[in-house]
């Protein structure tokens, strides 16, 4: 194929577009320096439409995007499968799906959930029974422990959440839990919220195994003495001289 033979060395882009000014040697090498901001901005699609047409070097070429792999005959999804897909998408985004929210939108929800149970293409869909609701998620897109965490967060009982996670962490890792842990994703509790919960925990016999300690650099931790001795928890919480 022969291209329009432009004279080499004559360096210029299409004229008359107003915004894409003549390209200087510097711009060509480093074409990211911000342009002047004095004119009113134009919306991208309007701008594109206003430009003269160009030849499409890919004319008639339609590169299949993911179609090639997806060409297997498109199966019509059942309503239950569509719901499962919705739950999966939310799980991929780190969210569980509440039964009560679904119920408000879908009349025959219970039948669909029953149907889902029978449908083996939906075997990844399961739920956690929280205090306030049932939380649905896909095991393909969300880990089991995270579903526990996010269900606790959704129940919005900070005391129960902190107690449960402090025990879980002491047993599983084993590790004392810094209060800061609950300031981060996905809890995002404020420090005053956490401190209020700590007060309630320390005054409730049900949480008698949960103790508090402050490490050598003033960071506060909780731990469960069912799984960690105070001495060991202290040692684990110590900020050692060398961590790099």
């Amino acid at each position: 194929m022969l291209f329009g033979r432009r004279k080499p060395g004559f360096i210029k882009v299409e004229e008359g577009d107003g915004i894409l000014e003549e390209v200087t040697e510097k711009d060509l090498q480093y074409s990211t320096s911000p342009k002047k901001d004095d004119e009113a901005k134009v919306e991208l699609t309007d701008f594109l439409a206003s430009l003269p047409d160009v030849e499409d070097p890919y004319e008639g070429i339609d590169v299949p995007e993911q179609e090639a792999e997806e060409e297997e005959e498109e199966v019509e999804l059942t309503k239950a499968q569509e719901l499962a897909e919705y739950i999966r998408l939310r799980s991929a985004g780190g969210e569980v799906t509440k039964y009560q929210d679904l119920k408000a939108e879908i009349e025959d929800l219970d039948e669909l959930l029953e149907e889902m149970k029978e449908d083996e293409t939906c075997s990844d869909i399961t739920y956690r029974q929280g205090v306030k609701d049932k939380y649905y998620y896909s095991t393909s897109n969300m880990s089991e422990n995270y579903s526990m965490i996010i269900s606790l967060v959704e129940d919005k009982d900070i005391v129960a959440t902190i107690a449960k996670m402090v025990r879980f962490n002491a047993k599983t890792y084993p590790s004392p839990t810094p209060l800061e842990y609950f300031e981060r994703h996905p809890y995002f509790y404020s420090r005053p919220q956490i401190e209020r919960a700590c007060d309630l925990i320390s005054s409730n016999e049900e949480y008698g195994d949960i103790e508090r300690l402050t490490n050598n650099v003033g960071v506060d931790f909780l731990f469960s003495n069912k799984y960690l001795s105070r001495k060991y928890a202290n040692a684990l919480a110590t900020d050692d001289e060398f961590t790099d």
Partner: peptide, 23 residues
């Protein structure tokens, strides 16, 4: 270092070098 939805575990103390997290 911080819980992520695909992961079963996170570094509870927060002192771990996979420290990129939502937020």
């Amino acid at each position: 270092a911080v819980p992520q939805s695909w992961a079963e575990y996170s570094a509870v103390g927060g002192k771990n070098r996979w420290s990129g997290a939502p937020g």
